[in-house]
Design a protein around this nucleic acid. Structure first.
Length: 289
DNA sequence: AACCGCTCCAACCGCTTGTGT
DNA sequence: TACACAAGCGGTTGGAGCGGT
């Protein structure tokens, strides 16, 4: 099955655009605009191209306000700062850089900045696919640890534990996160505002926890009264809720992403990421996952 | 000169979101 | 409300160009 193609691929030209095609598209758009329909545009303009291809060519290359050439240090700083805060939302980042497209920014990040900023052995925090998991067991002592690429375990006492993982993010001089976790709930976990890769936690009861245990969850402190709903559709299938390895008598803490509207808040304030707590008796979460 | 590996970026793919009916 | 379709978006790919051997 699968999605039907937007056009008949066998009847459209693909690959690089010729100067003639560029001129045809530019002239047509200058005279007629898009007409609100990119799909129909190539036929009207006399181009043997897919509408999506025309749109991309215009937006990424032909548009008169496109800025070509090397990125400046200021632009680089903007990209780094925004990536740190919101991740790979290239269109949002590009909107802060006049004349730059999301494709430009994305390419620049992937080819230059990523290598420049990320040590080879440092896992890039990826909003969607590098979701990290951690486990808080009900006995033992929590271990300060560096979270590896996929998962790590925090061993905690049932009454209280120190929560002090170290996150491998290239942006932080001091990339530790510390706090107190109290198994009696109402636990505050101070969180580094710029550790966006761990901006959201889900605490899920394991299969052999009691129903009361299953009701534990993390929530952002600014939403104290609302249950913390996960966004499984945005998670990598291997690291998402369904992919969490279930330890015996444990909770899984899953970092994930904020939905778009919450990630930035009304004013794009990354501080929304900063504080999390655990409530002891909120409504169940895991059952709905 | 020829080959190879690497970098860069334009373009594509397909999923998500928005909008109209 | 449900559906269809187009636009938006981010991840990925292909190939041109360049430098090193």
């Amino acid at each position: 099955m699968g999605r039907s193609p937007c056009c008949d691929k066998s009847k459209v030209k693909r690959g690089s655009w010729s100067p003639e095609e560029d001129a045809t598209l530019r002239t047509y758009l200058h005279n007629h605009g898009t007409g609100g329909n990119w799909i129909a545009l190539p036929h009207k303009a006399g181009l043997q191209r897919c509408g999506k291809s025309c749109r991309l060519r215009w937006l990424n290359y032909l548009r008169p306000d496109i800025k070509h050439g090397a990125f400046t240090q200021d632009e680089e700083n903007v990209i780094c700062n925004l990536y740190r805060k919101i991740g790979s939302r290239w269109s949002v980042i590009a909107s802060h850089l006049p004349g730059r497209t999301d494709n430009d920014v994305k390419n620049y990040w992937n080819t230059k900045l990523k290598k420049k900023l990320m040590p080879a052995d440092c896992n890039t925090p990826r909003m969607k696919t590098n979701v990290k998991t951690a486990t808080i067991a009900t006995s033992g002592t929590i271990t300060t640890t560096t979270i590896p690429d996929k998962a790590t375990t925090f061993h905690a006492s049932t009454t209280s534990l120190a929560f002090s993982p170290t996150f491998p993010t290239p942006f932080l001089a001091d990339n530790t996160t510390a706090g107190l976790v109290n198994a009696n709930a109402k636990i505050t976990v101070p969180y580094e505002p710029i550790s966006f890769s761990f901006s959201r936690f889900i605490l899920e009861g394991s299969s052999n926890c009691s129903s009361a245990d299953n009701s534990n969850y993390f929530s952002p402190s600014h939403q104290d009264s609302s249950p913390f709903m996960p966004f499984a559709s945005a998670m990598d299938e291997n690291y998402g809720v369904n992919g969490i390895p279930r330890d015996e008598y444990s909770y899984e803490v899953l970092s994930s992403i904020w939905p778009q509207e919450e990630a930035l808040g009304a004013d794009g304030n990354a501080d929304l990421f900063s504080i999390f707590h655990i409530d002891s008796n909120p409504p169940g979460v895991s059952q709905s996952l």
